[in-house]
């Protein structure tokens, strides 16, 4: 059974500014000692998430709202497994599809087909699954003969179409998204919207961060607001207006 359980999750980032990354600074700091060290002891730390708890069951569609820098993306990345919790627990059962960055892991000099393969492997498909889906992915991308050409010759719209076609070909139990993905021209937009909707419908849990109230209203059943790393409780979508006003 699929579920997402997060309890007391805190994530802190040490911010390694250019200053702190230099070995020289460390060595010199140590040699000089005293004052200089005191002024720059350790990197500044940002608390990106503080004591966040939530629990999602199959069927839940959670919308994350909040200002820029409130921790939405950090929470999504933590759910995707990229950030390890500094405090608290994070437990997810089910296959996760993280649709956070379309341009992930592509090789501009490789052809479209090679990139489909590479991207799909990073998304966790086996070569056999990729072989089975290749035609369908290629067809959906609508790139036809361009697939045999290097990705660097593509327009940004074409690159996005390719990436979109691949990552939405994965079945997942938990879908993570940073804003509703919308790519390509008008015709493709419609087709891709359908495809993404059916992927989301097939998944049992969706977590989406968005600044667009309409997106949240149309896809989510629950909503949570983040403010400077602190999370509100998860409430029903009906209470969205109250949450925004609060």
């Amino acid at each position: 059974m699929t579920f997402v359980r997060v309890s007391g999750l805190s994530i802190r980032f040490p911010v390694y500014a250019v200053d702190h990354r230099s070995l020289k600074k460390h060595v010199i700091g140590a040699a000089v000692g005293g004052k200089v060290m005191a002024a720059s002891s350790g990197p500044p730390i940002v608390s990106a998430l503080r004591n966040v708890s939530l629990s999602l069951e199959p069927g839940d569609r959670l919308g994350l709202i909040g200002h820029n820098g409130s921790g939405k993306t950090t929470l999504l990345r933590a759910l995707a497994g990229a950030y390890a919790p500094d405090e608290g627990q994070l437990e997810i059962r089910g296959r996760i599809a993280s649709l956070l960055d379309l341009s992930l892991g592509v090789d501009p000099s490789a052809t479209g087909l090679e990139n489909i393969r590479l991207r799909a492997m990073i998304a966790g498909l086996t070569s056999r699954q990729i072989d089975e889906r290749m035609d369908e992915i290629a067809e959906f991308s609508g790139l036809g003969p361009y697939l045999a050409m290097p990705l660097k010759t593509y327009s940004s719209g074409m690159q996005a179409r390719l990436a979109f076609s691949v990552i939405t070909s994965v079945e997942a139990d938990v879908v993570l998204m940073d804003e509703w993905i919308s790519v390509g021209d008008a015709a493709f937009r419609e087709a891709s919207h359908k495809r993404l909707t059916s992927m989301v419908d097939a998944a049992s849990i969706l977590v989406i961060a968005s600044h667009d109230v309409n997106t949240i209203r149309s896809y989510c059943t629950k909503v949570m607001r983040l403010e400077a790393g602190r999370a509100s409780s998860v409430v029903d979508i009906e209470q969205l207006d109250d949450l925004i006003a609060a």
Binding site: A80, G81, A82, S98, L100, D101, S103, L104, G105, I122
Partner: peptide
């Protein structure tokens, strides 16, 4: 960096 920041690989 890009892959490490977004996936659990």
């Amino acid at each position: 960096a890009g892959i490490l920041r977004q996936t659990s690989l």
